[in-house]
Write a protein that binds this DNA or RNA. Structure first.
Lengths: 192, 192
DNA sequence: GACAACATGTTAGAATTTGTTATAATGCCT
DNA sequence: AGGCATTATAACAAATTCTAACATGTTGTC
């Protein structure tokens, strides 16, 4: 049994019974009480429970996200720093979770799109998608893959690239990249 | 069997069981544990899972900012990638726009805070404020000043610092920094 | 067929986890 | 408050797991 397994089961028992006892847990999992102590210490610093003498009790879980409109491409929830909005000629506004989906949508909808806004990844403010600078395929996966992030300044994009890698592209080259990626790569789970 | 097949099956098993064990996977697919390690490394950098000792677990869903509520310190609107939540002993949940406000609130409220969550600046998922790594005063101003950003991995924080500068600190040193910064402006002192 | 790119296995050393022991701290009882 | 039993912490050694480096085999391209 893995430490992570044990941690999960401890949290389950905690939720079920409202309290867990160290002596009991050590027998259940056939490990020493010291190991349970260390498990509880870690879960406590991660904010999952509160240690009391001889065991642990639950703490309130973080507030759950309220239901929000989802990405019109992949149906995950858009976040302020990555989202894009596409304004169509018929007045409809489409919301995308990230530039990956937003730019794919842009290609898909073609002339129907009157204007497109991305969000600056650092600050979250809306920027024109045409004027934005994009970082494609950095070393961290964010939202959909291949990861595409938008920046209001080219210098911000280059700074991000300095730490996280990837290519700094304008919108035309980013669209070109996504087109090639869509043709070359086999479909992945969260690709759209 | 192709690596891509194995990756897909690993993800399926992960979704089904909530955890996968390296030893078990290596036997199932008749490959060495090193190969499974490499599979999990790749899936981790692609953002599909998180490695733990002996196996891997799914990625928690990102937290969402509800548009209405404002920061309890500065009353600006919190965004998903920067927000913090403080859970108080009386059950109240306080929401802050960014670690700058959240950590100031943490100092102010002291023992009343049962647990504190920050959001990973890159992905927006909730992380424990105690275990997070912070970048203080980078070359870009984001939300309140002095700018403080939270990261789930120290390596992410260091990568960000590589491009944008600033200091990489743990929570204790970040609080210390904020205290000193506050003293330069006003001469009020808070003990912890 | 030569070559590069990729996938896999093996090994040694580093890092993490675990149990044991000794010592400190806490709660409870009178 | 003092004494006792229980629980918590710290330090160490042993076991396990992780990582990096290299060697080997496989695939695809020219």
């Amino acid at each position: 049994m893995l430490p992570a397994d044990r941690h999960q089961q401890i949290l389950n028992r905690l939720q079920e019974h409202g309290i867990v006892h160290i002596h009991e847990l050590s027998q259940t999992f056939s490990v020493s009480e010291m190991t349970i102590h260390r498990d509880l210490d870690q879960l406590e610093t991660e904010g999952h429970l509160r240690k009391v003498r001889g065991g642990a009790v639950p703490i309130p879980a973080p507030a759950l996200a309220s239901p929000v409109e989802t990405c019109f491409m992949c149906h995950t929830a858009p976040r302020s720093q990555t989202q894009m909005t596409l304004h169509l000629s018929n007045g409809v506004v489409q919301r995308a979770c990230c530039p990956h989906c937003g730019l794919h949508g842009l290609m898909m909808l073609g002339d129907q799109v009157v204007s497109a806004f991305a969000s600056d990844f650092l600050r979250g403010n809306a920027i024109n998608a045409q004027a934005a600078t994009y970082v494609v395929e950095p070393a961290v996966a964010i939202c959909c893959t291949p990861t595409v992030l938008a920046f209001q300044n080219k210098s911000d994009a280059e700074r991000f690239q300095k730490g996280f890698g990837g290519q700094v592209l304008d919108i035309a080259r980013t669209l070109q990249f996504l087109n090639q990626a869509a043709h070359l790569k086999s479909h992945r789970k969260k690709e759209m």
